[in-house]
């Protein structure tokens, strides 16, 4: 298989460009020097210790987790309603309504954040992590709807009718048949929206009212050159956690597909 050596080279360069910078993270996180530059000065774990000892990090992490978990839960639940309704039912104005739900995908985030800020201040709502959650739900719901729509679309309509035919109500049919079969989609949606929320910066910065939030915290720390290595240490941990989370999600997704005998139509890994 050596018909297109150009393509192979292209693929290797592409991957290097994509992951090279991320590989730099752990390199300098363990480097015994406060400036990020070659040559490497020796091995140390002190940046991890320094990062670990910063109480602001823990506050930011806690807030971010609250925001991301709430956002993922809310937008996935909203996504289930919207996707189910758009796939299964006909109602007047559906294209318009679905269009508006999906619109935040393409709206500039900066504009959304600014207008939200103006409106919230205008009606006198105090900024807090709750306002950040609101903003994030707005942004993440379109992703949830997109993922869940394809999950609901792959359901054979006869399955529902069969459950009804065998005496179940609409509610118990949803619980016993539909929900288990779209569960991989729900997990995907939860994971994606969680990931989007946890590293989102603009809305968090505008609507967070100076609360420590992970992305805002990291951005702030970069102003101090001495803090950069400990932020690289934090980044290293975040990358590690992301890979583990993704692997777990993919494991469950593949198991779900194998259990129902479906065809694997691609996932994250």
């Amino acid at each position: 298989m050596n018909r297109a050596p150009g393509l192979k080279t292209y693929a290797v360069i592409y991957l290097l460009f994509l992951y090279g910078p991320i590989l730099i993270l752990p390199l300098f996180a363990f480097n015994d020097a406060s400036i990020v530059a070659f040559p490497l000065a020796g091995f140390t774990t002190k940046w991890f210790a320094e990062m670990w000892a910063d109480p602001n990090l823990w506050k930011a992490l806690k807030n971010s987790l609250i925001i991301a978990l709430s956002t993922a839960t809310l937008s996935t639940v909203l996504g289930i309603f919207a996707a189910r309704s758009s796939v299964r039912y006909k109602w007047p104005g559906k294209p318009v309504v679905m269009g508006f739900i999906m619109l935040p995908l393409v709206l500039p985030e900066m504009i959304v954040a600014m207008s939200l800020l103006i409106v919230l201040l205008g009606i006198g709502i105090n900024l807090s992590i709750f306002t950040v959650i609101m903003g994030h739900v707005l942004m993440c719901t379109p992703f949830a709807v997109a993922i869940l729509t394809s999950a609901f679309q792959s359901l054979d309509r006869s399955l529902e009718e069969a459950a009804l035919d065998l005496g179940e109500s609409a509610a118990s049919t949803f619980r016993l048949i539909i929900l288990p079969l779209v569960m991989p989609g729900i997990l995907s949606s939860f994971l994606i929206t969680f990931t989007i929320s946890i590293d989102e910066f603009i809305v968090a910065n505008f609507l967070g009212s100076g609360q420590p939030i992970l992305s805002v915290y990291i951005f702030g720390q970069f102003r101090f050159p001495a803090k950069v290595p400990s932020m690289l240490a934090l980044g290293t941990i975040l990358v590690g956690v992301s890979v583990v989370l993704l692997a777990i999600a993919e494991y469950f997704r593949r198991r779900g597909i194998a259990r129902t005998g479906g065809k694997d139509t691609g996932g994250f890994l």
Binding site: D156, S158, L159, E161, L164, L181
Partner: peptide, 17 residues
């Protein structure tokens, strides 16, 4: 769900899980 009928579907609609 209250009719005295049951159906065999064209796709069989076997619950895959």
């Amino acid at each position: 769900n209250a009719r005295p009928t049951n159906m065999v579907f064209q796709s069989y609609a076997i619950f895959p899980h």
